[in-house]
């Protein structure tokens, strides 16, 4: 495939267009994912916070965490409210699960890294990543300031992609369509924009072909720029050279025949 000027320019611009749109789309997606994840995390943090409040109210009445049987119902109710919630569990400071929306997990231990935020000086909400789940949690503190354990809520990673996948794919399709349309436009407009170059080269080629055949006009003194002026003179000089050499050859031939 020969690479015409229009093709070269189109290829360069289309490559830049594709890269630009890809980078923009990726940045847009990352930003959207950030905002969406933050919103989802904050919602589930709030749900965990409401459970924490209920549990701490009971703790403040002097009950031990292990004794708060009504908490099991609360977390099961919250889990039932949102099908995206994978689980809610409450564990003590040693990591033993005391209450879990999946009752089969009661008595098991939570991963070690879930306990790390509980030993931190500032008892802030925490978020950890656990295989296929995002975990948001809040420490449970009694009115004496002792950390009794934590409440954590698990929701799936890839929530954004799963919930909004079709929308994102549709958007990706729209962007791909835009790239396609503007690529086509690039090819057409590049061809038009370079038309003047092609035309000028064609005219010059034509002048050269005529000059080679001894038909070219003499230099056009009204040329638009220095190059045109020089080219006109060049064509004329080429024609003159061709004619002169031809005439000289004829003369040599004539002299050669003089015997």
């Amino acid at each position: 495939m020969s690479w015409s000027l229009a093709r070269k320019v189109s290829a360069a611009l289309i490559a830049i267009l594709v890269c630009t749109m890809m980078v923009t789309a990726l940045f847009g997606f990352f930003k959207f994912q950030d905002v969406m994840s933050e919103l989802v995390r904050s919602r589930y943090s709030f749900v965990a916070f409401t459970i924490k409040q209920k549990v701490e109210d009971s703790l403040n009445l002097g009950f031990a965490l292990r004794q708060l049987r009504q908490v099991q119902e609360t977390i099961e109710l919250e889990k039932a409210r949102d099908e995206q919630v994978q689980g809610i569990e409450i564990f003590d400071a040693k990591g033993e699960i005391l209450f879990n929306s999946d009752r089969g997990r009661i008595g098991a231990s939570v991963p070690e890294n879930w306990l790390l935020p509980l030993s931190a000086a500032s008892l802030q909400p925490f978020a950890v990543l656990d295989e296929d789940s995002n975990v948001v949690g809040l420490p449970l503190v009694n009115n004496l300031g002792k950390v009794e354990g934590a409440v954590v809520l698990l929701y799936p990673t890839g929530y954004v992609e799963r919930e909004l996948g079709p929308m994102l794919w549709r958007l990706a399709g729209e962007i791909a369509g835009l790239v396609g349309v503007f690529s086509l436009l690039t090819v057409m407009v590049a061809s038009v924009a370079l038309g003047a170059v092609r035309q000028r080269l064609h005219v010059m080629e034509h002048a050269l072909l005529l000059a080679s055949g001894g038909e070219a006009p003499l230099a056009d003194t009204a040329a638009v720029d220095e190059f045109d002026g020089h080219f006109g003179e060049f064509v004329a000089k080429t024609r003159e050279a061709v004619e002169h050499i031809k005439a000289s050859t004829d003369e040599v031939e004539r002299l050669d025949r003089l015997a």
């Binding site: 003047a196 170059v197 035309q199 000028r200 005219v203 010059m204 034509h206 002048a207 005529l210 070219a216 006009p217 230099a219 056009d220 009204a222 040329a223 638009v224 045109d228 080219f231 006109g232 064509v235």
Partner: peptide, 8 residues
Amino acid sequence: ALTGLREG
């Protein structure tokens, strides 16, 4: 042929 050069 050459006057065409002036067109563009």
